[in-house]
Write a protein that binds this DNA or RNA. Structure first.
Lengths: 205, 205
DNA sequence: TACTCTGACGTCAGCAACTGACATCAGTAG
DNA sequence: CTACTGATGTCAGTTGCTGACGTCAGAGTA
């Protein structure tokens, strides 16, 4: 099916060490292609497996479910963010710690073209949006945990984490949809400025 | 199965107008019970239907999927919030508009015991957490839309909505987990105060 | 060399979440 | 009395996903 000759039937060729591309990578690429071509719901796990030249069962050995293919990078991202937080000096304010971390990871992890492609797929399907939301929520929870370990008290930790992740999301969106030349750091900085203008008064109702 | 005699096999009895409780209500109650008793994943749609005295097919006619039973109130809640926003005077700041709306709906819609039960079920299952997150995200998006219709510019609208919904979530959590006597309005007010202390500086990195 | 062990993969059977198409049947409008 | 409607049952089928088990190549080991 695919134009690449990688998907030929004669796998199991002389593979010393890591010779042939592994099933994982082939599956990930096949899934991305198919989700783009015909939409997430319209592609079956079997089709992905076939394009990758493996069995359906093998697909589910590498990915917990159909959606997970699109969220591979998440743990990696989270690990980097937490590590960055750990390195930040103690006297910085909680939110600033988080935002600094968000700031740092940008150029490190993302391929813009891939991100755009991925975002298009996700935005077309509620089930995928749900998963993305959960990943962000998980990220927020562990950031809050990291903050707590630094001695930040409880409501502040959660709020700072939540705020930081919100900045990340909105900044990311902007980075993807804006002009290609715009810098990651710039997106984050502007978003923070806008956020500050929006802070609520105490008077409610 | 159930102790209530509602679930006897002889439905289809003389029902003039609305005599017998409708399938919708029975299904919702049955699902709640079973999710509580043995967990979400451990209960099948068939079991729910049986306890409600109908067919599995009927379950899926009333609820888009197994999870949806737990998220019935969402649209209603959203409608009320949007209506409240529409009534708020124009000169109030965006976030304050949103938070005032959140403030108002509390006593209106929630039954505390039911909320606690529901929260317990949801927090035990990632798939349900995903759905909840999506509902909040949807709410946030429509609040942002409502704000835009009042003339609020774009980044502010989204940020204000996001912030308001975050306050709602954290306040709600507190309302559920805190002392039963604590007022909804009080939870929201305190959360707002904490949020203000957390606002980021412009200096990042 | 032979022997075993392991890790990646295939095969197969099966469950459960849905869905579409169609039948049925009570009550209602005409 | 008949035709229609709306809520439900029946049934067959697709798809996501899982467990159990077989297989086979390569690496290590005697």
């Amino acid at each position: 099916m695919s134009a690449t000759d990688i998907n030929s039937k004669d796998r199991r060729l002389p593979l010393m060490g890591r010779w042939l591309p592994d099933a994982h990578g082939r599956l990930a690429r096949a899934a991305l292609e198919l989700y783009s071509e015909r939409g997430f719901e319209q592609t079956t796990a079997l089709e992905i497996a076939e394009r990758a030249g493996v069995t359906e069962r093998t697909f589910f050995r590498y990915f917990a479910d159909k959606r997970e293919v699109l969220f591979q990078g998440s743990q990696e991202l989270q690990r980097i963010i937490l590590a960055t937080i750990a390195e930040t000096p103690e006297d910085v304010r909680p939110v600033d710690v988080v935002i600094a971390a968000m700031n740092k990871v940008g150029g490190l992890v993302f391929d813009r073209a891939h991100s755009i492609r991925r975002a298009a797929i996700i935005s077309a399907n509620p089930a995928l949006q749900e998963r993305e939301l959960l990943k962000f929520s998980t990220l927020s929870a562990s950031v809050a945990g990291a903050l707590r370990e630094r001695g930040v008290a409880e409501p502040s930790a959660t709020l700072a984490a939540e705020t930081g992740v919100t900045v990340f999301k909105i900044g990311f969106e902007r980075w993807i949809t804006g002009t290609p030349s715009e810098d990651w750091a710039e997106c984050i900085r502007d978003t923070v400025c806008q956020l500050r203008e929006v802070t609520p008064s105490i008077i409610v109702g």
